[in-house]
């Protein structure tokens, strides 16, 4: 039997935090596999481990127990430096509140990230931004953009290096309903177009119809809707 390589594979993940004098478990036996070209949502009210899930899936911190693999690369137990390299090459982040660098225009936001893995390719950056409807905003700085433009620039930044896994943290949080939906639609489009795995953490029920699979975070575990 050939072992299938998943874009993201989390098995038996445990994570707890110290809360006063006892340990507060946040994730308990969490399992999740996401394949290429698949867009999944992780839904749950805030404060119940969504961020923790995202930071572990995104190689920002390690789990207490269990294994996490990104594109077949085992990231449990590796050093901070090793995690940095995984984030650099394997993962594209879309953060809440865009997190663009204030001093870079849209094109430079992307070329700065390109330089992390190779060489700047301004043409590719411009074409991706144009695909996302930002053709007229290529030279705009974040403070000149609308909320939707900023979040679309952030999407472009996450995809520009063609990472295997796209992680989005509440991408609709700062947008109104229509724009939020549009942004998630774009994430879906790019996930399908580049055949990447996408995981969106959200509490925004309105965008769930765009997902291939939906998971609810309950008591530290992921429960698939309809499963």
């Amino acid at each position: 039997m050939v072992k299938q390589k998943f874009a993201l594979e989390m098995k038996g993940v445990y994570k707890s935090y110290r809360d006063g004098d006892h340990m507060q478990p946040v994730l308990q036996d969490l399992n999740l596999t996401v394949s290429d070209g698949e867009l999944v949502a992780v839904v749950g009210p805030s404060g119940l481990g969504k961020s923790t899930f995202l930071t572990i899936a995104g190689a920002l911190q390690g789990a207490d127990e269990g294994t996490v693999a990104v594109n077949g690369i085992q990231i449990s137990g590796i050093s901070q430096k090793g995690l940095t390299e995984v984030r650099r090459h394997q993962i594209g982040f879309i953060f809440q509140n865009h997190q663009l660098l204030p001093y870079l225009n849209a094109v430079d936001q992307l070329t700065a990230v390109q330089k992390l893995v190779g060489h700047r390719d301004e043409a590719a950056a411009k074409s991706l931004l144009t695909d996302l409807g930002l053709g007229d905003s290529l030279n705009k700085f974040p403070d000149q953009m609308s909320g939707g433009e900023r979040q679309r620039t952030a999407i472009a930044r996450a995809f520009i290096n063609h990472p295997d896994l796209i992680l989005a943290d509440e991408p609709t949080a700062s947008l109104d309903g229509a724009r939020g939906y549009q942004v998630v639609e774009m994430i879906r489009r790019e996930v399908k177009r580049f055949n990447k795995a996408g995981v969106i953490v959200t509490h925004d029920e309105r965008v769930l119809d765009l997902m291939d699979r939906i998971f609810y975070l309950e008591d530290g575990r992921l429960v698939e809707k309809g499963a």
Partner: peptide, 13 residues
């Protein structure tokens, strides 16, 4: 904040 972001997207120290 910026440094946090740069670290998150995989920029080395």
């Amino acid at each position: 904040r910026e440094f946090g972001l740069l670290k998150a997207i995989g920029m080395r120290m």
